[in-house]
Structure formats: structure tokens, C-alpha cells
Measured scan of single mutants.
Amino acid sequence: KELVLALYDYQEKSPREVTMKKGDILTLLNSTNKDWWKVEVNGRQGFVPAAYVKKL
């Protein structure tokens, strides 16, 4: 599985998104969309802005 690092805090704005804190390590589930990547964090799956994370 591929991991990404949260570069910034992000507060979810819809049920399809997830909240993350700067420094969190997230599991990358899908990065086919250039703007929104699907990740898993704390057992929850959802989208975060691709610009807010970096592949490890």
C-alpha cells in the first residue's frame, strides 16, 4: 500500500471528505483525480485535496 504525508491541516467540508492534521501519515487509496485523492485515516475513508499531501 502507498502512504502519503499530510503537509497541512484539512477540515472536512462534506461527508465524502476526511479531516487530517499536518504530519499525519495516511493510506493512499486512489490518486487518479489530480485534485482530490482518496485516503484512509483513523479507519475512515474519504477525499483530501491532492495539494495537501505528498507521497512517501
Rank of each mutant, 00 (worst) to 15 (best):
N33G: 10
Y8E: 10
F47N: 04
R44E: 06
V48C: 05
V41L: 15
P49T: 01
K54Y: 12
D9H: 06
T19G: 09
N30Y: 08
D24Y: 05
F47P: 00
G23I: 00
T19K: 04
P15G: 10
L26K: 00
L5S: 05
D24K: 03
S31N: 09
K21Q: 10
V48Y: 00
I25C: 06
W37C: 04
L3Q: 11
S14Y: 07
K22D: 03
K54C: 14
V4M: 05
D9N: 10
V48M: 01
D24C: 06
Q45N: 08
F47I: 07
G46D: 01
A50V: 06
N33K: 07
L3M: 12
A6Y: 01
N42Y: 13
A6I: 02
R44G: 04
P15R: 08
G46I: 04
Q45K: 11
L26H: 03
Q11C: 10
Q45M: 11
D9L: 02
L7N: 03
V41R: 15
Y8N: 09
K54G: 09
T32R: 12
D24L: 06
L56C: 10
V53D: 00
K38N: 07
W36G: 01
R44P: 01
L5C: 09
A6M: 02
D24F: 05
P49C: 03
K22Y: 05
Q11V: 14
R16A: 13
S31C: 10
V41G: 14
A6R: 01
P49M: 03
N33D: 15
D24S: 08
E12Y: 05
K22Q: 10
S31D: 15
Q45E: 13
L26R: 01
S14F: 07
K55R: 14
Y8V: 11
S31Y: 09
Y52D: 03
G43I: 03
L7E: 04
K38T: 10
W36H: 03
A51C: 14
K34V: 11
K21I: 09
V4P: 00
V48P: 00
K22P: 03
Y10F: 08
K13T: 14
P15K: 11
Y8R: 15
F47W: 15
V18K: 02
Q11K: 13
E40D: 09
Y10W: 11
W37D: 01
V41C: 10
V4C: 11
W36Y: 08
F47S: 04
D35G: 10
V4R: 03
M20L: 10
L56P: 03
V4E: 00
Q45S: 12
G43R: 05
T27H: 11
T19F: 05
V48S: 00
A51P: 08
A50D: 01
Y8T: 09
K22A: 14
Y52M: 11
V18N: 04
N33F: 09
V4K: 01
K13P: 05
W36T: 02
Y8K: 13
Q11D: 13
G43N: 09
A51Q: 13
A51I: 11
T32M: 11
E2N: 12
A51S: 13
T32S: 15
G43S: 07
F47C: 10
K34F: 10
E17M: 06
V48N: 00
K21V: 09
T32P: 04
L56V: 13
T27D: 06
K55Y: 11
D24Q: 15
S31G: 12
Q11M: 14
N42R: 12
G46A: 04
A50C: 07
M20C: 07
E40L: 09
T32H: 13
T32G: 11
P15S: 14
V48A: 04
K55V: 13
K38L: 15
T19D: 04
S31W: 10
K1E: 11
K38E: 15
K13V: 10
V53C: 13
K55H: 10
T32N: 13
V48H: 00
Y52Q: 05
V39P: 00
L7G: 02
K55L: 15
K38C: 12
S14G: 13
Q45C: 10
E2T: 13
P15N: 12
I25T: 07
P15T: 11
G23P: 00
W36K: 02
A50K: 06
K21L: 09
K55S: 09
L26I: 08
K22N: 04
N42S: 10
K1I: 14
E2V: 14
I25S: 03
L26N: 01
L29I: 14
S31L: 05
L5I: 15
V41N: 14
R16H: 13
K55I: 14
P49R: 04
G23K: 02
Q11H: 14
L29C: 07
S31H: 11
G43E: 08
N30L: 10
P15L: 10
V41S: 14
M20P: 00
Y8P: 00
V53Q: 00
T19W: 04
K55W: 08
P49L: 04
V41F: 15
W36Q: 03
I25Q: 05
R44F: 07
K55Q: 09
Y52P: 00
V48I: 09
K1G: 13
Y52W: 07
R16Q: 13
Q11E: 14
E40R: 07
A51F: 09
D35F: 15
N30F: 08
L5H: 05
K1Q: 12
K34T: 12
K13L: 11
M20I: 14
A51K: 13
L56N: 04
L29W: 07
D24E: 12
A50T: 05
G46V: 04
S14I: 05
T32F: 10
G46T: 02
Q45Y: 11
L26D: 00
I25V: 12
V39Q: 00
D35N: 14
L3P: 04
V53E: 00
S31T: 11
N30C: 11
Q11A: 13
L28F: 03
I25H: 05
G43P: 04
K54H: 10
N42F: 11
L5N: 02
S31P: 06
W36C: 06
N42V: 07
E2A: 11
K54F: 12
K1M: 13
G46R: 02
K13F: 06
Y8Q: 12
V53K: 00
W36I: 03
K1C: 12
P15H: 13
Y52S: 10
K21S: 10
M20R: 00
N42T: 07
K22T: 08
R44T: 08
T19M: 05
L26G: 11
L56M: 11
A6H: 01
V4H: 03
L5P: 01
D9M: 04
E17I: 04
A6P: 01
N33E: 12
T19H: 05
T27S: 09
W36D: 01
K1T: 12
K21M: 09
F47A: 03
M20G: 00
V39Y: 00
N42P: 10
V48T: 02
K21C: 10
L56Q: 06
K13D: 06
V18H: 03
Q11L: 12
K38D: 04
V39W: 00
V4N: 01
E12S: 15
K22H: 06
M20D: 00
L7V: 07
N33Q: 10
K54S: 11
V53M: 06
A6F: 01
D24P: 00
P49Q: 02
T19A: 08
A6C: 11
V53R: 00
E40N: 05
V41P: 00
Q45A: 12
E40C: 11
A50L: 02
L28E: 01
L56H: 06
F47Q: 04
V4W: 09
K22R: 12
L29P: 00
K22V: 08
S14R: 10
I25W: 05
V18G: 02
D35Y: 15
F47H: 06
K34Y: 09
L7T: 05
V39L: 04
K13Y: 05
D9K: 03
N30H: 08
F47T: 03
M20W: 02
V48Q: 00
P15E: 14
P15A: 13
I25F: 07
L28K: 01
F47D: 04
V18R: 02
V4I: 08
W37K: 02
S14T: 12
K34M: 12
T27G: 07
